[in-house]
Design a protein around this nucleic acid. Structure first.
Length: 425
RNA sequence: GGAGAGGUGGCAGAGUGGUUGAAUGCGGCGGUCUUGAAAACCGUUGAGGAUUCACGUCCUCCGGGGGUUCGAAUCCCUCCCUCUCCGCCA
């Protein structure tokens, strides 16, 4: 959520931000409601002040033996007037809230203006020693490899749950588990994150807090009976750990890392992108979340990207860093880098991580604040998160990149102590 | 699933219709004392909103929502959550 004062005082700036993000501009309606709201508040508060004043005098009058019946009649009218204004006010505030929840975060000034993914900027590439983009002969894609080696089973996953629910078998399952543990350990031990093992079901307030709701409602699995949502990312439960809290300055920054299964309905996205691991309803992800002071957030964004990169360097998988343009930026983000890993079989880059600074957008929605030692008023924190990383896309690159000429998979060295084997055949 | 108890300020905990935004204690902050610290003592200490250049003034908030009343933390309805016991179960 952005600050309504910013909208009030600088509507043109906000309109520009909305346009650059390809979102719907409803500022005029919003501002009109805001104005109405304030007119009514002024009126109703005057009446309430009067009511409070008179009400406190009534016991004194009674004590003095005065007749209060006339006052009571008059006050009854005032009260009725108040409640009708309050009803009106409530309805306006609900509408206002609705508009406000659909206003996207403003892009940071360092984000290039652009319409779509084509306007994103490649910041840098990292390639393992001896790597070449030249396509080898007889290269298999991850689906063929998974089938041949008996480590992935998409058909049976479809039988058990539906399409987009892959099953890992034998060494495939072990490899997946090894990857998750490796990444968690790396961030905990080398990057000093605190480990969180979060719930996979969250309530509506949490989904609103991090900005998935209301806009992305159709992409979430929802359990009606209990009014709970499956998490689309560990970002949601972890960031919401501090919802409605005022933290002490000394507690910041908070650095969390956690694993969760991630569930996404991916409504309306069936098609060519959907094969194998490329688009699934359930996948595994290790997520980093930072809660920081505003002045530190852009520095921390670079840190989070570096932390995710370290994993890929350790795994020796080729990747590149993409700075998203305004048009490709998600609803809640102010700035975002994607990390894409190379798929030799697809002959293209795959998004395996997304690292974002939300500034105070989520903090406002979730009311996460902190108090500086010197100041009395609490301030909103800045929140960030980054995948470190998502295993599905990463697994595609890993399997394809580490396949041998015989069609077996060499296990990356850093994973071997987690898998207990060094070859999948 | 059954039975019961309870949700009040950073925490603990009073308060059952009328200056109660809320006693008291702890914690926090400031001060006195001290070479320094502790102890003791004194003072101070919630959030959001409207309005104002500002000082300030006013409104709202005692789990959420609704109701009764001139007036609700306090009474009524409803929902949610937490805890204890029993049952079931990984």
């Amino acid at each position: 959520m952005i600050d309504i004062k910013l909208i009030r005082e600088n509507p043109e700036l906000v309109k520009q931000g909305i346009r650059n993000k390809n979102e719907k501009d409803t500022l005029d309606e919003l501002l009109k409601l805001d104005e109405e709201r304030r007119v009514i508040i002024t009126e109703v508060e005057e009446l309430k002040a009067k009511r409070n004043q008179v009400s406190s005098k009534i016991p004194q009058m009674k004590k003095a033996g005065e007749d209060v019946s006339e006052v009571l009649v008059e006050m009854k009218q005032v009260s009725d007037h108040i409640s009708s204004l309050d009803t009106k006010l409530k309805s306006i505030e609900e509408q206002l809230e609705k508009y406000l929840l659909f206003i996207p975060n403003m892009p940071h000034s360092s984000v290039p203006v652009g319409k779509s993914a084509e306007d994103n900027i490649e910041e840098r590439q990292w390639l393992p020693a001896g790597f070449s983009f030249d396509k080898r002969e007889k290269i298999l894609d991850h689906i063929e490899l998974g089938k041949k080696l008996g480590i992935l089973d998409f058909e049976r996953g479809a039988k058990v749950s539906g399409s987009g629910f892959p099953v890992y078998i034998d060494k495939g399952a072990t490899l997946e588990r090894a990857l998750i543990n490796f990444m968690l350990d790396y961030h905990i031990n080398k990057h000093n994150y605190s480990e969180v093992f979060p719930p996979f079901l969250v309530n509506k307030d949490s989904m609103l807090g991090t900005g998935q709701l209301p806009k992305m409602a159709d992409d979430m699995y929802y359990i009606e009976k209990d009014d709970l949502y499956t998490v689309p990312t560990a970002e949601v439960p972890i960031t919401n750990l501090h919802r409605n809290e005022i933290l002490d300055e000394s507690e910041l920054p908070k650095n969390y890392v956690g694993y969760s299964a991630c569930f996404r309905r991916e409504a309306g996205s069936y098609g060519k992108e959907a094969k194998g691991f490329l688009r699934v309803h359930q996948f595994n992800k290790v997520e980093m979340v930072k809660i920081v002071k505003p002045e530190d957030s852009y520095n921390e964004l670079e840190n989070i990207v570096n932390d995710a990169e370290d994993i890929l360097k350790a795994l020796e998988i080729p990747y590149r860093i993409i700075l998203l343009c305004t048009g490709d930026l998600s609803f809640s983000a102010a700035k975002c880098y994607d990390i894409e890993t190379w798929s030799p079989a697809e002959n293209k880059w795959l998004e395996a991580s997304s690292c974002s600074n939300f500034e105070d957008f989520q903090a406002r929605r979730a009311s996460i604040r902190f108090r500086r030692k010197s100041a009395k008023k609490p301030e909103f924190v800045h929140t960030l998160n980054g995948s470190g990383l998502a295993t599905s896309r990463l697994m595609v690159s890993l399997l394809e990149h580490y396949q041998t000429i015989e069609g077996t998979i060499a296990v990356p060295e850093v994973l071997q102590k987690y898998t207990g084997f060094n070859l999948i055949d």
